[in-house]
Design a protein around this nucleic acid. Structure first.
Lengths: 248, 248
DNA sequence: GCGTTTTTCGCAATATATGCGAAAATGTAA
DNA sequence: TTACATTTTCGCATATATTGCGAAAAACGC
């Protein structure tokens, strides 16, 4: 996430899983201001619930985030509609699989809902709030593949450094070629790209004629050894995506 | 949630379940500023993920809220620890019950986790993100009952208007009396206070010697007709709370 | 490509945030 | 309860960042 010159926002950005609690002095130091100014901001942020004082001199993220996430969940018809369809997808395929619904935002692809089978073979990695790497894995790729040229190019240029790290020799042309194939297939399939030994198979979810999300199934690699199985999983994921699209 | 003089925060407060999408002009009007200034703020908020442009000229809450909620979930050891204990509580009592974990913040009590039995008798009302009315229902009351005098008085005075609406004749003394009884019992039991026909039974969760949360069981009123049952539910909720406290 | 709407930008005026130091409030330990 | 140490708030003069305006650029649909 980009930096900001807005101090209010800069303060919120200081908090993370690694650093969930800060003192007023920590904040003052980090945003390069006096302690009293830090307190002024902190007070305001606490008043509206973005921060919460957890004990004398210590502050943490506040209840507003939990509440706003709730607001977003509630006003997102996609999730309500998709959840039972995702459950059904698991039943149709394999009780060990995870099914993930990811939504495209302007700067990222985020897992927004997840369903697991009754016998998950590994602790679920992809739950609401997890950012999917933009250029790695079926979930994101299948979305990129259906993006308008302009948007795609912007994303690519914004993230060129990251891409180079992972795929040093890939040209823009090759990249486009890959995506074109995905577009033609109507799904994306990746093996061990995001996590070792796991395969992802994802289909795009459209609203009107733009992609807004993707559904992916995550399974152990071995499941796909059998071609027959792979084909049936492909179809199941694709028709799950089609079903999700019928929302509203 | 209180108003704020900070425009950045004021903008975020405009978004709600009823009004999830706004135009730049809407924002400008609401915060009483020019459209270009509104755009300046919106741009900044989008850059850090607090807002997201959903289509030409329309903006909505952004991915940051989902991500921050995730960060909070992950860095909250209480939830991780409590979840299986809450499931067990359902097994020990009734498969139709809901069990709710609520956390005390400075200005509110929020449901932060919820488990449902295999046969929920009604769609679950209390899920992560739902604010519990502060002075109504077992969940909040049992927390208030164990608050230090100072904090309690501050909360009471801050919310006196709301309280008067619901309990016009209650004096501070009577209120304190009620809480004292709850403190003595070690749990709070309310019938149809929050929603008709539902009963809540809640026990406090301590860290050190201050309350930080509560566990509640929500059941149909009829369950409690049998005294025997009620006593055993009481004990089960209380020992669930004790078990949750063993975290860290 | 063309026209319409949305979004950005530069600039000068001015409202607003800032740091300082003092005072108040809060919690802790005796 | 009192006294102490730490945290938090506040007032004020000054510097600084924010504002609105209008023009220009960008984005999108046709």
């Amino acid at each position: 996430m980009a930096a900001t010159s807005n101090r209010t926002l800069a303060i919120l950005q200081l908090f993370s899983e690694e650093r969930p609690v800060l003192t007023a002095e920590d904040v003052a130091t980090a945003i390069e201001t006096s302690v009293s100014t830090a307190y002024r901001y902190i007070k305001e942020l606490c008043a509206v619930g973005f921060l919460d004082s957890v004990s004398r001199g210590e502050f943490a993220l506040g209840p507003a985030f939990i509440q706003y996430d709730f607001v977003m969940r509630r006003s997102d018809a996609l999730i309500q509609h998709a959840a039972p369809l995702m459950k059904r997808l698991i039943e149709e395929t394999d009780p060990r699989s995870d099914v993930v619904l990811s939504r495209l935002f302007n700067n990222c692809v985020l897992c927004i809902h997840q369903e697991s089978g009754p016998e998950p073979h590994t602790p679920t990695r992809y739950v609401r709030g997890v950012a999917m790497p933009l250029f790695v894995g079926a979930t994101s790729k299948v979305i990129l593949a259906h993006l308008p040229d302009r948007s795609l190019k912007r994303l690519y240029l914004d993230n060129e450094d990251d891409i180079r790290k992972r795929f040093p020799d890939q040209t823009w042309k090759e990249f486009k070629q890959d995506l074109k194939a995905i577009r033609k297939d109507g799904y994306s399939f990746t093996m061990s790209e995001v996590s070792e030994g796991q395969t992802g198979l994802a289909a795009p979810v459209f609203r009107g004629d733009s992609v807004i999300a993707s559904v992916s199934i995550v399974m152990a690699k071995s499941i796909f050894d059998d071609l027959e199985t792979r084909l049936s999983v492909q179809d199941a994921v694709k028709s799950c995506a089609r079903a999700i699209e019928t929302v509203r």
